[in-house]
């Protein structure tokens, strides 16, 4: 009898759990799904029908064509791709090298340097842009793709922490035995340790990749020429000419979302573990 009662409460909980989860997922997905519907609608469908209606056909691609040509999206994708490749490669090496030095060597000023990086994570990024702009201006780095890349590389405290943590767990005996065999410090780093950092590198690529792909504030500030725009700032140009023609805007929004959605679906596990690992800093 008691057992019956317990299982009844149990099933009630289960039902409630699924109701809540389904509801939450629907709420999370709805704003994007409506965008998908709208992006495939013709001008008349958009003007007359309800926004929640399905489009007549998911093969109507005019909105996408219009969005791609008007905002010169192909060029912007190329820019974003270049920025991603350069920034990610440099960031991984810079952070891994710094973490190696801070973790494996003891020298005067080491603690000071570590706390300098620690304190830097407290400073709010956007607040500093006022003066960073001045510095960029005086260095002549504004309106150059490489200038923008340098700015994005400069503020990378999270990945430094990730690598520092990872080095803690790599035994020093690895270094020692390699040195015994005649390896130089450079050899130890590049041949022995760097290949072992793979999980931390994956995490950095995920976290940094997402933030670079979606970055728009600095891009808006430092890349003002139309041909230098990145994906996110290209999307921002839709504000003016299209006003409330949301069928074009939604097409543009989808174009920016699709690459990251595809990558997310392929690398789901790595993305989750990367996110979780990135949280344990500090």
């Amino acid at each position: 009898m008691i057992r019956m009662k317990k299982s009844f409460v149990g099933t009630l909980f289960d039902v409630l759990k699924y109701v809540i989860l389904v509801l939450a997922s629907v709420i999370a997905v709805t704003p994007v799904v409506v965008c998908v519907f709208t992006a495939f609608k013709t001008e008349e469908e958009y003007a007359q029908g309800s926004v929640l209606e399905l489009p007549h056909s998911f093969l109507y691609l005019e909105n996408f064509k219009e969005a791609i040509t008007k905002a010169n999206m192909a060029r912007c994708f190329l820019n974003t791709f270049l920025v991603l490749v350069v920034v990610l490669t440099c960031s991984v090496f810079i952070s891994a090298m710094l973490a190696y030095i801070l973790n494996r060597f003891r020298f005067p000023g080491r603690n000071l340097i570590e706390s300098l990086f620690l304190f830097a994570s407290l400073l709010p990024g956007i607040a500093m842009q006022v003066t960073i702009y001045q510095i960029m201006y005086s260095l002549g780095l504004i309106n150059h793709l490489y200038g923008y890349m340098i700015v994005l590389m400069g503020t990378d405290i999270v990945s430094i922490y990730l690598f520092l943590q990872f080095f803690e767990n790599l035994p020093v005996s690895l270094d020692e035995s390699a040195t015994m065999d005649g390896c130089t410090y450079f050899g130890v780093f590049f041949r022995i340790l760097f290949p072992l950092l793979k999980p931390a590198i994956m995490t950095t690529l995920v976290l940094k990749g997402v933030s670079v792909y979606n970055e728009y504030y600095a891009s808006n500030l430092y890349l003002q020429k139309p041909e230098l725009r990145t994906i996110s700032t290209a999307l921002y140009t839709f504000t003016g000419p299209y006003g409330s023609k949301y069928n074009y805007i939604c097409a543009g929004v989808l174009i920016t979302i699709i690459p990251i959605l595809v990558i997310f679906l392929i690398f789901q596990k790595q993305v989750y573990s990367g996110m979780a690992a990135g949280a344990v800093k500090g």
Binding site: S25, A28, V32, Y213, N214, Y216, S232, I260, L261, F264
Partner: peptide, 12 residues
């Protein structure tokens, strides 16, 4: 479904 919004760019 819950996580995906985090990956969308601020402008979008």
């Amino acid at each position: 479904a819950l996580f995906f919004p985090y990956l969308i760019c601020g402008i979008a």
